[in-house]
């Protein structure tokens, strides 16, 4: 565990907490893509199957349980408790366009053709593109609330910090995982446009509004 990896995990945790707090305190999930949240829940479910087969550390297990619980709690808030505030008219991304290619690719390019490895690989590919419905929603409405953009910034920072962690681990321990790294780069690149808008607008106190 190095500082970049820890920073990445904490940024991820922060993003999840920001989202839950936003929905809970405003009693509304307006502006949040339920489709992206479904994909994140699917991602964690597929990836953390090893929770029952492999013990790594208390930290590792606790974080997995927290991520899973938070993902399903978010879905509950969006699709049950505050369903009336869910902006489904703007959340029109077709999930099968992301799930099917991720599943197909996981079956072809993986470390080992076993259920747990293919599911892990599927989760890596799916996570890389899981934010697309959310970004699509922001581009459709042309704007995002500040709290939503803080959430997106924390979520994007997480994988960016993981990349630094992978570079560090490659030089310090010779460790590398090509699948995770390439997918992580794709995932981070998807956030670049958003990062630019966040730094140039949101941090200067303006609302995130896309140029017309």
């Amino acid at each position: 565990m190095n500082i970049f990896r820890l920073g990445g995990d904490l940024a991820h945790l922060l993003a999840i907490i920001i989202l839950l707090l936003k929905i809970w305190t405003t009693r509304s999930c307006a502006g949040i893509s339920g489709k992206s949240q479904i994909l994140f829940a699917l991602t964690f479910t597929a990836r953390y199957l090893d929770l029952f087969t492999n013990f790594v550390s208390v930290y590792n297990s606790v974080m997995k349980v927290v991520y899973l619980a938070a993902a399903y709690a978010t879905l509950y808030l969006m699709y049950v408790k505050f369903k009336a505030t869910y902006d489904h008219n703007h959340d029109t991304f077709r999930l099968e366009f992301l799930i099917l290619p991720a599943a197909g690719l996981a079956l072809i390019i993986n470390h080992e053709f076993s259920i747990i490895e293919v599911m892990w690989t599927f989760s890596i590919y799916l996570e890389a593109v899981a934010i697309l419905p959310q970004l699509f929603m922001v581009s459709k409405t042309g704007e995002a609330e500040s709290i939503t953009s803080h959430y997106l910034f924390a979520l994007g920072s997480y994988r960016a910090l993981y990349i630094v962690n992978w570079v560090y681990r490659y030089y310090s321990e010779g460790f590398y995982d090509m699948i995770a790294t390439l997918a992580g780069v794709v995932q981070t690149v998807l956030y670049c446009d958003f990062f630019y808008l966040y730094i140039t607008k949101v941090l200067k106190g303006k609302k995130l509004q896309l140029p017309a």
Binding site: R5, H12, D50, N54, V56, S57, M63, K64, I116, W120
Partner: peptide, 10 residues
């Protein structure tokens, strides 16, 4: 390598 790959990252 037949051992199960240990994935220590989240």
């Amino acid at each position: 390598e037949l051992t199960v790959r240990i994935k220590d990252e989240l």
